[in-house]
């Protein structure tokens, strides 16, 4: 058993999953917004980065790590709400290109402002959890307390989101607002509020991903989330954009693909893992892995 956990394959699997959960969280956050407003938010990564930086700044002032995590999530919530209210709301009913352009513009602003305020150097949040890998009977296992925390946090968030959508009144209203806004209104659902809540929730989930990145050994820099957003986007498409579970699995697959490319092919080409996966999936199942291929009846 211990030999197995330390085998090269398991090294790659652990490292791939550790990266993959970050993609999964971003993918999940994109799916939440997509489902509630049919907007693909290109500023998602930048918003998350920004919210994490705000939290990080407080760490520098001596705030406790856990409180900073909570603070970042809170800033993320506000950010999401603000974005939907101010930037996205005027664009409902307009061609979808308009929303894409606006979120792309927002991405540009956020990264430039972050670079202006915090410079473009990498920043790292010191976590109270050790980043040192475990040893099992003298053999290295690519898991550390922090990596395990990262998995646990991601799982908790995914379960929370899934549970919220599936089992709560709020989740039901969120889903109804996305599926049939007019009908939802006729039934008394405050659809506008639901759209805002969808964006808030999504931004918060994204923020957790950015904070995990910032807490990891490589840290976070202002344009760091660009690549992560792309991987998250691919993960969401691979999963079908409608399916939270699909998005999560897609993210994990991309993390693994990148890690295996890195180990067995070329470190430079690792970022292509997602694209390769995407091309394969698009050829096999253009509607995504996890979309029920039932056409929607009107």
């Amino acid at each position: 058993m211990s030999q197995f956990l330390s085998s090269p394959i398991m090294h790659n699997i652990f490292a791939g999953l550790a990266q993959g959960v970050i993609y999964s969280l971003v993918a999940l956050s994109l799916v939440i917004i997509w489902q509630s407003t049919h907007v693909l938010n290109f500023a998602q990564g930048a918003m998350a980065m920004f919210a994490s930086y705000v939290g990080m700044t407080e760490i520098d002032r001596g705030l406790n790590y856990w409180l900073c995590l909570v603070l970042s999530i809170f800033v993320g919530l506000l950010f999401g709400g603000f974005t939907e209210r101010v930037l996205i709301r005027p664009l409902y009913g307009k061609p979808e290109i308009n929303a894409i352009v606006v979120t792309v513009g927002f991405l540009g602003v956020l990264e430039a402002v972050a670079q202006a305020v915090w410079t473009s150097t990498t920043r790292n949040i010191a976590t109270p959890l050790s980043q040192i890998y475990f040893h099992n009977q003298g053999r290295l296992v690519l898991l550390s307390p922090f990596v395990i925390f990262q998995f646990a946090l991601a799982i908790v968030i995914m379960l929370f989101v899934a549970g919220l959508f599936r089992f709560t009144d709020l989740g039901l209203q969120l889903r109804a607002s996305a599926l049939a806004p007019e009908v939802a209104r006729l039934l008394g659902v405050r659809v506008n509020r639901m759209l805002t809540i969808g964006w808030m929730l999504s931004a918060a989930v994204g923020t957790v991903a950015a904070t995990i990145v910032a807490s990891g050994s490589f840290g976070l820099y202002p344009s760091d989330m660009d690549g992560i957003l792309i991987a998250g986007f691919i993960a969401a498409v691979v999963g079908g954009l409608e399916s939270p579970v699909g998005a999560v699995i897609g993210g994990l697959l991309i993390g693994l693909a990148e890690q295996f490319i890195l180990s067995y092919w070329s470190a430079d080409l690792a970022p292509l893992g997602g694209i390769i996966l995407l091309v394969v999936v698009l050829m096999l199942r253009p509607q995504g892995l996890f979309t029920k291929s039932v056409s929607r009846r009107v």
Partner: peptide, 19 residues
């Protein structure tokens, strides 16, 4: 820092406002 990133900030804001 701010001066070096002014272009990014201005372009981004212009893009949003125009749209």
């Amino acid at each position: 820092n701010l001066g070096a990133n002014m272009q990014g900030i201005i372009f981004g804001i212009l893009l949003i406002l125009t749209m």
